[in-house]
Design a protein around this nucleic acid. Structure first.
Length: 308
DNA sequence: AAGACGAAAGTGGTTGA
DNA sequence: TCAACAACTTTCGTCTT
C-alpha cells in the first residue's frame, strides 16, 4: 500500500485495504473509498540479489499504448533499398512509400489527438492506469481498422474507455463517462457496442456488486450496510432476479434495502441520484427483492424499531 | 411538506420473422 | 426491414409519515 494515506479521513480508522486492480483504497471500518486513483509505483517482484533483479528487470523503453506509436516507430523504405531497384519497380516503390507515409501519418495524427483526450477523460474519472492502457489499446485497434470513420474521435475514445472499465471490473456508468467526455450517453453506448462487436471483444455483463463500494461511499453508508447489501445481491443472483436488469438499478436497490435495515435510511431520491437511475427503477427492484428474499418482516421490524 | 408508491405513456435498443 | 418486446424513464396523482 502506498504511503500517502494512513488514516481514514472519515472515521480515522487505520484499517485500510488497498485494491491494486481497482486502484482504490477502502476503509474497512466505514467503507469510505478514500482514493480512487492510485498509481502503483512499487516493483512487482522482489530482488534478493542483484543478479536476480537484473534478470527480471525489463530493459529498454517501456512499450505502451498510451503513446501514439506504442513507443516504437516503423519506417518503410530506406534509401539504401533504392539502389537495388530500377525503372518500374522504382516508381512502384515511391508510390507505395508515399501511401504508407500518408496512411501512417494520418493514423498517427489521429492517435496523438485521441490519446491526449483519452488521458484527460481518464484522469477526470480517476481511472487506474491499467484501464487507461487497455482503452488506449482498444482505441488503437479501432483506428487501425478504420472504425473511427464517420464517428467523432471523442465518442470512440469514450466508448473505448467504457469498454476498458467493464473489462477490468471497474465499471463507471454511462452517465459518468458522458459527464467526463461531454459526449451524449446514447452516442457512447452506440459506439461502445459497435467497436466491441467489430473488434470481437467480449465483455461480460457487469456485476452489480462492483458498483456497491462506490455508491455506498458516495452515500456515506457504514461498512456493515455495504457488506449486507452485497449479501442481498448474492441472494438476488441466485433467485435470478438480476439477469436482464440494469446492474446499477439492482445495486441501488440492494443498497437502499440494507440502509433501511441498518437504520441508515436514505431516500430513494438520494440513492437514485448516486446510482444514476430513477426512483421508479429502485422501487421496482426493491419490490422484487422483498418478494423474493423474504425480507418483508425484516423491513417491518426495523420500521417498528425506529418508531420507538 | 416530503417521501413513498404505482399507473400510464414514452424512449431507445434488441430480436426474430 | 419492420413489428413485437423488455427494461427503463418521465410524469403525475394518491397515500403515508
Amino acid at each position: 500500500m502506498p504511503e500517502l494515506v494512513k488514516k481514514c479521513p472519515e472515521c480515522s480508522g487505520v484499517n485500510l485495504s488497498w485494491n491494486r486492480d481497482r486502484g482504490e483504497i477502502t476503509c474497512r471500518d466505514c467503507g469510505l473509498v478514500i482514493e480512487e486513483k492510485m498509481v502503483d509505483f512499487s516493483q512487482e517482484w522482489r530482488e534478493f540479489d542483484s543478479e536476480e533483479g537484473e534478470k527480471r528487470r525489463r530493459s529498454g523503453a517501456p512499450m505502451t499504448y498510451t503513446q501514439y506509436d506504442q513507443g516504437l516507430g516503423t519506417e518503410v523504405g530506406q534509401k539504401a533499398d533504392l539502389f537495388r531497384l530500377d525503372g518500374k519497380d522504382r516508381n512502384k516503390f515511391f508510390r507505395l512509400r508515399k501511401w504508407q507515409y500518408r496512411i501512417s501519418t494520418a493514423i498517427e495524427r489521429n492517435l496523438k489527438l485521441a490519446l491526449s483526450e483519452l488521458k484527460r477523460v481518464s484522469s477526470f474519472l480517476k481511472l487506474p492506469k491499467s484501464v487507461e492502457e487497455e482503452s488506449a489499446r482498444i482505441y488503437t485497434l479501432a483506428v487501425q481498422r478504420g472504425l473511427v470513420r464517420g464517428r467523432s474521435m471523442e465518442s470512440v475514445v469514450a466508448g473505448a474507455l467504457y469498454a476498458a472499465c467493464r473489462r477490468h471490473d471497474v465499471p463507471r456508468t454511462l452517465d459518468e463517462l458522458s459527464e467526463a467526455s461531454g459526449i451524449e450517453k446514447k452516442e457512447i453506448g452506440r459506439t461502445y457496442r459497435f467497436v466491441t462487436r467489430e473488434l470481437g471483444i467480449t465483455i461480460l455483463p457487469s456485476n452489480p456488486a462492483d458498483y456497491i463500494a462506490r455508491f455506498s461511499s458516495a452515500l456515506k453508508l457504514s461498512a456493515e450496510t455495504q457488506s449486507k447489501s452485497i449479501e442481498i445481491l448474492e441472494k438476488a443472483q441466485k433467485s435470478e432476479l438480476t439477469s436482464g436488469r440494469g446492474p446499477t438499478g439492482i445495486a441501488a436497490a440492494a443498497l437502499y434495502v440494507s440502509a433501511l435495515l441498518h437504520g441508515e435510511k436514505r431516500t430513494q431520491r438520494e440513492v437514485a441520484d448516486v446510482a444514476g437511475v430513477t426512483e421508479v427503477t429502485i422501487r421496482n427492484r426493491y419490490k422484487e427483492l422483498l418478494e423474493e428474499l423474504d425480507l418483508e418482516k425484516d423491513v417491518k421490524k426495523s420500521k417498528k424499531k425506529r418508531r420507538k
